[in-house]
Amino acid sequence: MASIFATLLVLVCLFLILEPLIRKKSEAESVEQLLENHELEFLQLRERIYEEIRTLQQEWLIKSVSEESYKTEIDRLRLEAAALLRDQTAGRNKIVELQSDLESAIGESR
């Protein structure tokens, strides 16, 4: 019984660590994954900015921040959100552009 469990343990562990090395196309290397990672990074940053905006708005409503601080902070967050959206679009376009360049280069070489 013990040897069956031991063998099973070794097999499961081997599968887990070797699978990323032997699979034909690594998920980490696909363009889709690259795009997904890119989107995830921006989503996390966006969530943080929205959270900050909401917290700030509530603090302003309950008069926990001064009018002046609120305006300065909300302007900073707006700028951050705008810059983020700009970077997100630019990054996404760059990846798609690179992919299409790559596809056409492969097509030409064939």
Binding site: F5, L9, V12, C13, L16, I17, L18, E19, P20, L21, S26, E27, A28, E29
Partner: peptide, 21 residues
């Protein structure tokens, strides 16, 4: 090398299976 990094991640995921046993 992202494949190697991913394999390292899998090692982290596999250790609690062994220690759980």
């Amino acid at each position: 090398n992202d494949r190697w990094i991913l394999s390292g991640k899998r090692a982290t995921l596999a250790i609690p299976i062994a220690l759980g046993l």
